[in-house]
Structures are given as structure tokens and as C-alpha cells.
């Protein structure tokens, strides 16, 4: 869970070989889980890192004398790069994304948020989402029959009360304007515990994101149900 933050705090400076080793150790957690068959994970090697750098997909390494050094930001960029490539994004979209975003934004992208990533990484999708938002705003102005059951108790935007959000686990804030006709699915996890899932919610694909999400749910539960826990 605190995986990335540890690296951020120690401000590591790696040689190329060390950097490659760290990345390969971390990668499995950040890549989408394979569907069905097991996927043979392609390891990153020094040549690949240099290739990405000349392609402009990674920041240039720092120089220290004759040696080059890689740091935390390079780590974030490379993890995100590998992940987006695996998900089929073009290098054009990734270039802008991984060079222009701040460290905090790169962390957020790795930690969760398929929707968030899609919007920033992909100009065509971002454009279509804008159109969709425009149409939804128009629809909201005109009365339309609800297409599906809506749950009046939960406003769609209230994914998590702000106070309960640990700084490391910013959830994938849905960026679309809440639409009153969106569908919600109710799943009873245990007697007395239900999940409400909006139809456009995407379950994260990497172990790291999944862990973050589980942690977030656990945190919420422990805050909302402290009394019962003590009495049991």
C-alpha cells in the first residue's frame, strides 16, 4: 500500500542497472492482471529504458559525473508507461501524459482510476466524453423519463466522504457530471453489508489498485461501524 511513498521519501538515486531491478520488482503489482491464461511478464532491461528515453517517453536521467542516475519520477513514469502500453495505448498519448504530469498526478494514475487515465491519456476519448457531458447537461435541462432504477439515498458523486480518505488512496473520482438516469447495481456482500456499484464503474485491473480499493473500503467500514466492532 505504502509502496510508492517509501520510494518517494528516501529519494533514491539509482544507476541504470539498479533502476531496472527496482522496476522489475514492482511491475507485477501495477500491471493489469492477466485474463485467463497466465501472461509471461516481459522484463524491463537497460536497453529498453534508454530506448524509451530517446523516444521522449521518459525524462532524461540526471548526470552525476560520467554516470547517469534515475530517481522517483523516472520510476513513476516507467511504471505508468509499461502499464499503458500493456493496455494498448499509443506512445503518442503516453508521451504527453508521462512527461507533463506532476509526480502526484502520476501516483494517482497508478493508484487507481481507469476513467481518470482514459481522459488524460487519450484525446479522442476525452473529446467524446466532453460531447457526452454536453448532451447530459442538455438532457438534464429537459425532463426525461428515468431509464433505470436510481437509488435516491446515494448521490452518485458521493463516492467517499473526504475525511475518510487517506492521502495515499485518492479514489478514481468519476469525472462525468452525475446523471440522474445512471444505473446502480446492488450487491449484498454479507448479511447487513451491501455494495452499490454505478454501471460505469470499472474495477481496477492491477493488484496495486485493487489493494488500494480494498483498503479504502476497510477504512470506511472501520470509521462507520466502530461501536458494533467494540461490542462484538
Amino acid at each position: 500500500m505504502q509502496l510508492l511513498q517509501q520510494f518517494a521519501q528516501i529519494q533514491s538515486q539509482w544507476t541504470l542497472e539498479e533502476f531496472v531491478e527496482v522496476v522489475n520488482e514492482l511491475l507485477p503489482q501495477f500491471l493489469p492482471l492477466p485474463e485467463g491464461e497466465t501472461r509471461i511478464l516481459e522484463a524491463v532491461n537497460p536497453r529498453l529504458v534508454r530506448h524509451y528515453t530517446t523516444q521522449g517517453l521518459l525524462d532524461k536521467p540526471q548526470r552525476s559525473g560520467r554516470e547517469v542516475r534515475y530517481g522517483y519520477r523516472h520510476l513513476l513514469q516507467l511504471l505508468l508507461l509499461r502499464r499503458l502500453l500493456m493496455e494498448g495505448y499509443g506512445s503518442g498519448a503516453i508521451e504527453r501524459l508521462s512527461l507533463s504530469q506532476s509526480n502526484a498526478e502520476l501516483e494517482a494514475l497508478l493508484q487507481g482510476g481507469v476513467q481518470l487515465k482514459a481522459e488524460t491519456a487519450n484525446p479522442a476519448l476525452a473529446f467524446l466524453q466532453q460531447i457526452q457531458q454536453r448532451q447530459q447537461n442538455l438532457d438534464a435541462a429537459a425532463p426525461s423519463p428515468p431509464l433505470a432504477q436510481t437509488d435516491p439515498r446515494i448521490p452518485p458523486s458521493a463516492a467517499a466522504p473526504a475525511a475518510a480518505t487517506p492521502p495515499s488512496a485518492a479514489p478514481a473520482a468519476p469525472q462525468t457530471v452525475p446523471n440522474k438516469s445512471q444505473r446502480w447495481l446492488r450487491v449484498e456482500v454479507l448479511p447487513g453489508l451491501e455494495l452499490h456499484i454505478r454501471e460505469d464503474f470499472v474495477y481496477p485491473s492491477s493488484p496495486y489498485e485493487q489493494q488500494n480499493l480494498q483498503q479504502l473500503i476497510a477504512d470506511q467500514l472501520s470509521i462507520l461501524t466502530p461501536n458494533r466492532r467494540r461490542s462484538s
Binding site: Y89, G90, A124
Partner: peptide, 13 residues
Amino acid sequence: IEGGMQVGQQLQP
């Protein structure tokens, strides 16, 4: 739009 989204999610120049 929906068709575009489907293509867009896999956009490759």
C-alpha cells in the same frame, strides 16, 4: 458516441 468510445479506448495512431 458510444461506437467512438469503443474505438477510442483502444486508440492507436
